[in-house]
Amino acid sequence: MKRRTLLASAATALGLTLSGTAWAEGMDKVKACFVYVGPIGDGGWTYQHDQGRLAVIEKFGDKVDASTYQESVPEGADAERVLTQMALGGCNIIFTTSFGYMDATNAVAKKFPNVKFEHATGFKREAPNVSTYNARFYEGRAVEGLIAGRMTKSNKIGYIGSFPIPEVVMGINAYYLNAKKVNPDVELTVVWAYTWFDPAKEADAAKAMIEQGVDVIASHTDSTAPLAEAAKSNGAVIGFGQASDMAEYKPSPRVTSIIDNWGPYYIDRVGALLDGTYEQADVWAGIKGGEVLIGEITEAVPAEVKAEAEKLRDDIASGAYHPFTGPINKQDGSPWLAEGQTAPDGDLLGMNFYVEGISGDIPQ
């Protein structure tokens, strides 16, 4: 369920290769396999991981067999069974693309030390053949927040949360903080859908917010349902593509998007097996590294707001700006970050609080 949970860990989020010996011998051909938590047609998270798989095929041609994947694999015992079958079936590297696969990934990796396992969003690397990777989605939330703060007419913006885990909470906070910077009157409504992919629940969440006067909606769920609901407003409500571009809703209500760009990472890791430079790694990259892309900002966004959003994107990429830069207090008014201080990765990875100004409680 909590496939993308991020926990505070000293080793996590370094974005660096861990110590260890590279598999020095290259390979003539690599069989790369993929395990997905949802259908590749979900239009969001799983769709974008599968686009990464296709990028591997395009890059390496007959040097790689990336035709093996399994959709909609439940998190739990079924995942261990699927991973075991893939390892026995000759997969050289297996990408497990959901947080809930963490224990299964590590358990199977110990049984197959010559197979490389890559776990998306996890933090356990219990064997030297397990690596972890993630993306700094909160950077994209900051760009969305700026656009939301500038474009709202009601001063009411919304956010559909999946599960109350650090990754989602940090996205909510980044969205709100950067909306508030440009519009001090903005108010945020958060609706928890308790799902990653359920179009009916996501649509209901969007509808509920629209009925409360929210006119800009961000979401941390995987379907296009929130945008479809916004589209019924005849231009009164805008939103953002999530995980993939969701370009079918351009130029409005989808005014830009956060795109999870897994292709470069998958190409890098498969390429490292081919050339013999593969090492165990833990990567948490963002806009700078190309794992988080900001989709086209459409003509529905005023030119001056578009320019401001693009500058924010570029400043995040260059390191000139961090989405969590003090002074920032926690929701209860207690200090968190002093003037000019930026959030340590450990604080973000364990984030379990709202920042000052957000109403409501984080469900337990």
Rank of each mutant, 00 (worst) to 15 (best):
residue 201 K to E: 02
residue 42 D to V: 04
residue 199 P to E: 05
residue 6 L to P: 00
residue 162 S to N: 08
residue 137 F to C: 04
residue 87 A to K: 02
residue 23 W to V: 12
residue 121 T to M: 11
residue 180 K to I: 08
residue 232 K to G: 09
residue 296 E to D: 15
residue 226 P to F: 08
residue 51 Q to C: 03
residue 63 K to Q: 15
residue 331 Q to S: 12
residue 154 S to W: 06
residue 5 T to A: 11
residue 158 G to Y: 00
residue 225 A to G: 05
residue 273 L to F: 11
residue 285 A to R: 10
residue 328 I to F: 10
residue 115 V to R: 00
residue 53 R to D: 01
residue 96 T to I: 10
residue 222 D to W: 03
residue 165 I to D: 03
residue 155 N to W: 09
residue 97 T to Q: 12
residue 228 A to H: 06
residue 83 L to Q: 01
residue 232 K to T: 13
residue 175 Y to S: 03
residue 201 K to F: 00
residue 219 S to K: 05
residue 300 A to L: 04
residue 70 Q to D: 07
residue 45 W to C: 02
residue 104 A to E: 05
residue 133 Y to L: 10
residue 281 A to N: 12
residue 79 A to G: 05
residue 115 V to Q: 01
residue 230 A to Q: 09
residue 141 R to K: 13
residue 92 N to Y: 04
residue 312 L to V: 11
residue 14 L to T: 14
residue 287 I to Q: 01
residue 13 A to K: 02
residue 296 E to A: 13
residue 169 V to M: 11
residue 138 Y to T: 04
residue 204 D to V: 05
residue 54 L to G: 03
residue 343 A to L: 07
residue 221 T to K: 01
residue 229 E to R: 09
residue 265 Y to D: 09
residue 17 T to H: 12
residue 268 D to C: 02
residue 17 T to L: 12
residue 350 G to N: 06
residue 289 G to E: 15
residue 68 T to I: 13
residue 2 K to L: 13
residue 252 S to G: 08
residue 31 K to W: 05
residue 161 G to F: 08
residue 322 H to D: 13
residue 355 V to S: 03
residue 95 F to E: 00
residue 11 A to H: 10
residue 208 A to T: 15
residue 250 K to G: 04
